[in-house]
């Protein structure tokens, strides 16, 4: 199980970074989303894996609980990353609509010094 999760984190990280290194805005947004999944899963896994042990206290039986702290951390991370994704999408969209260009790189004209 640990191997499955670790390899999934690795694959998502690799794919995400590959997409982040593309030169148009949309793939970069996709890449950031993939990296977000990977990072969230990574943080979650720092609490170690456990099956059937949700951190919901059982008043009647003495059962095992998994680590609640990374879960709380990741829960807010998921929501915040939605906010950040939305901001980046908005920036990308505004940039595209204003310049009709979705290149991520700012290329500066060497002669005039103006951004193209």
């Amino acid at each position: 199980m640990e191997f499955l999760l670790a390899s999934a984190v690795g694959v998502m990280t690799a794919a995400g970074i590959f997409l982040i290194l593309r030169r148009r805005t949309f793939p970069v947004i996709l890449g950031l989303s993939l990296v977000t999944y990977a990072v969230n899963a990574f943080l979650f896994a720092t609490g170690r894996l456990a099956l059937n042990a949700p951190p919901v206290l059982n008043k009647y039986e003495d059962v095992a609980y998994t680590d609640p702290l990374p879960q709380a951390l990741v829960l807010t991370a998921i929501v915040i990353s939605f906010g950040m994704t939305a901001v980046i999408v908005m920036i990308a969209l505004s940039a595209y609509l204003t310049t009709k260009n979705d290149h991520i790189d700012i290329s500066v004209d060497k002669k005039t010094g103006e951004e193209r």
Partner: peptide, 20 residues
Amino acid sequence: DAAISIVAGLGSGGLIYALM
């Protein structure tokens, strides 16, 4: 880019495996 990504993926996957 693929080389960079694969190395990064191996690194993060390996790290979390070692942690877990």
